[in-house]
Deep mutational scan, measured.
Amino acid sequence: MEQATVKWFNAEKGFGFIERENGDDVFVHFSAIQGDGFKSLDEGQAVTFDVEEGQRGPQAANVQKA
Rank of each mutant, 00 (worst) to 15 (best):
G54S: 10
H29M: 04
A32E: 06
K7C: 10
E2C: 14
E12V: 12
N62G: 04
D24Q: 13
F17E: 01
P58N: 06
D25Y: 12
G37C: 10
F49E: 02
G44C: 09
A46H: 14
D36N: 12
G16T: 03
E52R: 10
T5D: 05
V51M: 11
G44P: 00
F49L: 07
I33G: 02
D36Q: 11
D50I: 15
T48V: 11
E52G: 07
V47K: 03
S31G: 06
N62K: 07
K39D: 04
Q55L: 14
F27Y: 06
A46D: 08
R56G: 10
N10G: 04
H29T: 00
A11R: 13
I18K: 00
A61E: 05
A61F: 08
A46P: 11
N10Y: 05
N62E: 03
I18T: 01
N22K: 11
F27N: 02
Q45F: 04
A60T: 00
F9L: 04
T5N: 10
Q64N: 11
H29V: 02
K65M: 10
V63D: 02
P58K: 11
K7E: 05
T48R: 11
D36S: 12
A61L: 09
M1E: 10
K13Y: 11
D50W: 15
V51P: 04
Q45L: 07
Q34E: 10
D36W: 09
F49K: 03
V28T: 02
G57P: 04
S40W: 15
Q64W: 08
K39S: 06
N22W: 10
A60N: 00
G23A: 09
M1H: 12
D42V: 15
A11P: 13
E2T: 11
G54I: 03
A4V: 03
N62F: 06
E12F: 11
G23I: 03
Q45S: 08
V47S: 02
A60D: 02
R20W: 08
W8G: 04
E2F: 15
D25R: 10
K7N: 04
S31Q: 06
F38W: 14
W8C: 11
W8Y: 06
R20Q: 07
V28H: 02
D50E: 14
A4F: 05
V47Q: 01
G57Q: 03
A32W: 02
N62H: 10
K39Y: 06
W8P: 01
A60W: 01
N10M: 02
H29L: 04
F17V: 08
E53P: 10
L41E: 01
G57F: 04
Q59I: 09
D25G: 06
G23H: 08
K65F: 10
G44A: 04
T48E: 07
N22Q: 10
I18M: 04
D42S: 15
D25N: 12
A11H: 13
Q64A: 11
K13C: 11
E21V: 12
E52P: 00
A46V: 15
Q34S: 11
F27L: 03
W8D: 06
A46L: 15
F49N: 02
V26R: 00
I18S: 00
G57R: 05
Q59N: 04
V26G: 01
T5R: 14
V6C: 06
F49V: 03
G54A: 07
E2A: 10
T5L: 11
T5V: 13
G14Q: 02
I18C: 03
G16P: 00
V6E: 05
V28M: 06
I33Q: 00
Q55T: 13
G35M: 12
Q55N: 11
E21M: 12
H29D: 04
V6N: 03
V28F: 14
G14T: 02
K7M: 00
G54C: 09
Q3E: 10
L41F: 05
Q64I: 12
A61C: 11
F30S: 07
T5M: 09
G14K: 00
D50T: 15
F17W: 07
G16M: 03
R56S: 09
F15D: 01
E12Y: 12
E52F: 13
V51Q: 05
G57V: 04
H29P: 00
D36C: 15
F9G: 06
E2L: 14
Q55H: 13
K65E: 06
F17S: 01
M1W: 11
R20V: 10
A61M: 11
E53K: 10
F30D: 05
A11Y: 11
F17Q: 01
T48F: 14
D50M: 14
E12K: 14
T48N: 08
D25P: 08
G35A: 10
A61S: 10
S40D: 07
R20K: 08
D50F: 15
K13V: 09
F17R: 00
D50K: 12
Q55K: 14
G57C: 05
L41H: 01
D50S: 14
G57S: 06
F17T: 01
A60I: 02
K13P: 03
Q59A: 07
E12N: 11
E52Y: 13
E52C: 14
G44V: 02
S31L: 08
D42F: 15
G35Y: 07
V63T: 02
A61I: 13
F38L: 07
D25C: 14
I33H: 00
Q34F: 11
D24E: 13
Q55E: 13
A4C: 08
P58D: 04
G54Q: 05
V28W: 05
I33W: 00
D36I: 12
F17C: 08
E43L: 12
P58L: 13
H29N: 04
K7S: 05
D42Q: 15
A11Q: 11
Q3F: 14
F38G: 06
M1K: 15
D25F: 13
G35T: 09
P58A: 09
I33P: 03
K13S: 07
T48Y: 14
Q59E: 08
Q45V: 08
N62L: 05
N62T: 05
I33T: 02
E21A: 14
G14L: 01
E52T: 12
F30C: 10
E43R: 15
A32H: 06
V6G: 03
Q3G: 08
W8A: 00
K13D: 04
T5S: 08
Q3I: 14
Q3R: 15
A32N: 07
V28S: 00
P58F: 10
D50L: 13
D36L: 11
A4Y: 05
F49C: 07
K7T: 01
Q64R: 14
F27Q: 01
A66F: 10
G37R: 03
E21L: 12
E53R: 08
E53F: 14
K39L: 10
D50Q: 14
G16F: 01
E12D: 11
W8E: 04
G35C: 11
K39G: 05
A60Y: 00
W8R: 00
F9A: 04
Q59M: 09
G44S: 05
G16N: 00
G54Y: 06
K65C: 11
I18H: 00
I18Q: 02
F27T: 02
A66S: 12
N10Q: 05
E19K: 15
N22T: 10
G44N: 06
F49P: 02
S31E: 05
G16L: 03
E53Q: 14
R20E: 05
S40K: 11
G54D: 06
E12S: 12
V6H: 01
D24Y: 09
E53N: 12
G14P: 01
L41G: 02
G23C: 08
V6A: 00
A4H: 04
G14S: 01
E19D: 06
M1L: 12
E43M: 14
F17I: 06
E43V: 15
F9N: 04
V51L: 12
E53H: 12
A4K: 04
K13N: 06
E12H: 12
Q45Y: 05
Q59L: 06
K13T: 08
P58Q: 09
G16H: 01
N10I: 03
V26D: 00
Q55A: 13
Q45R: 04
A4M: 04
N22D: 10
T48Q: 09
E12W: 11
V63A: 02
L41C: 05
G37S: 06
A11V: 13
V6P: 04
E2D: 07
A61Y: 08
E2Q: 14
D25L: 15
F49M: 08
V63E: 01
G57N: 02
L41K: 00
D50A: 11
A46G: 09
K13E: 05
S31N: 07
F15Y: 15
G23T: 05
R56L: 10
S31R: 07
A60L: 01
G54F: 06
W8T: 00
W8K: 02
E12A: 13
D25H: 13
S40E: 08
D24I: 13
E19R: 15
D24P: 15
L41Y: 02
G23R: 07
I33Y: 01
G44H: 08
D24T: 14
E12T: 12
Q34I: 15
A60C: 00
L41I: 05
A4E: 02
D25E: 11
E21K: 13
F38A: 07
Q55I: 14
E19T: 15
D24R: 13
N22P: 08
I18E: 00
E43Q: 15
G16S: 00
P58T: 10
V6K: 03
A66N: 11
G23M: 09
M1C: 13
G44E: 03
F30T: 06
D25I: 14
Q59W: 08
D36R: 10
S40L: 08
Q45N: 06
F38V: 08
G35E: 10
K13W: 12
S40P: 01
